[in-house]
Simulated scan of single mutants.
Amino acid sequence: MLVAAAVCPCPPLLVPEVAAGAAPELDAARAACDEAVGAVLAAGPDLVWVIGEGPATGPHRPGSRGSFHPFGVDLDVHLGAPAEHAVEATLPSSLAVGAWLLTRAGWAGEARGYEVAPGSPASGNVDVGERLADGRTGKERVGFLVMGDGTACRTLKAPGYLDERAEDVDARIAQALRTLDADGYLRSLDDRLARELKISGRGAWQMLTGGRRKDHGAARLLYEDAPYGVGYFVASWT
């Protein structure tokens, strides 16, 4: 069963070596991520799934490698302990940032990744989240590290330029994360809207809602802001 989940943004700039001189601008987000990931590890999971958007949909095995070389930094990360033999860097950037957060937190247990492609059907995302949480890997206690950003259209200089809808959508995402998606907003978040507002967290958040047990739980929204015109959220679900 899912014992705890952390929701974190996934910009490579979260990694100080990538951000370089701009690293202090995300210090608050980084600290919130540390707190959320720490809460997952404190719950004693046997396995942590790192979930985030990428070009394809499917799992990544323990030891899979991600690299920040495309961002000009000689830094590799792995899902848990590195594989015994050299492996190709296959993790998309969202999962690479998640792997970096786990390593930063000192996680020495098993970690697996699940990559979800943009446009994946909501019902399928929810079903996958339920399967990942139900212990079919033989692990009874499962943690989720869910990586994704909100809208990228909050300002004129944002990656997607300014869209007047973005602020309201991000507010609804924040409220959903604060309330364990009580109103089902994340679960039903429209793919077309997500594409128009360049939301990268849709599929991963929907998987989270599938993994959560409906009869109990608590949520905390630890961070909400839009640096660089992109909606970033950090939440802890336990």
Rank of each mutant, 00 (worst) to 15 (best):
A6D: 08
C8Q: 06
P9A: 09
P9F: 03
C10R: 13
C10A: 14
A19K: 04
G21C: 01
P24L: 02
L26T: 01
A28D: 13
A31H: 05
A31S: 14
A32I: 06
A32H: 04
D34N: 05
E35Y: 00
E35N: 01
G44W: 04
P45D: 05
L47C: 12
L47Q: 09
V48Q: 09
I51K: 01
I51E: 06
G52M: 09
E53M: 13
E53T: 14
P55I: 00
G58K: 11
P59C: 03
P70K: 08
L75S: 04
D76S: 13
V77H: 05
A83P: 02
E84P: 12
H85D: 12
H85F: 07
S94M: 11
A96R: 10
L102P: 11
T103L: 05
G106T: 09
G109Y: 05
E110F: 00
R112H: 10
E115R: 12
G119Q: 12
G119H: 10
P121S: 06
G124T: 12
N125Q: 13
G129P: 01
G135T: 01
T137H: 13
V142T: 10
L145I: 08
A152E: 11
C153A: 15
C153S: 15
D163T: 04
D163G: 10
A166H: 09
D168I: 01
D170V: 06
A171T: 12
A171E: 14
R172M: 11
I173D: 07
L177D: 08
T179W: 04
D181V: 05
A182R: 15
S188T: 15
S188K: 10
L189M: 15
D191S: 13
R195K: 11
E196W: 00
E196L: 10
S200E: 13
G203M: 07
T209C: 14
R213V: 01
K214T: 03
A218L: 07
A218N: 11
R220V: 03
L221T: 11
L222R: 12
L222A: 06
A226F: 08
Y228G: 02
Y228F: 12
V234W: 02
A235I: 03
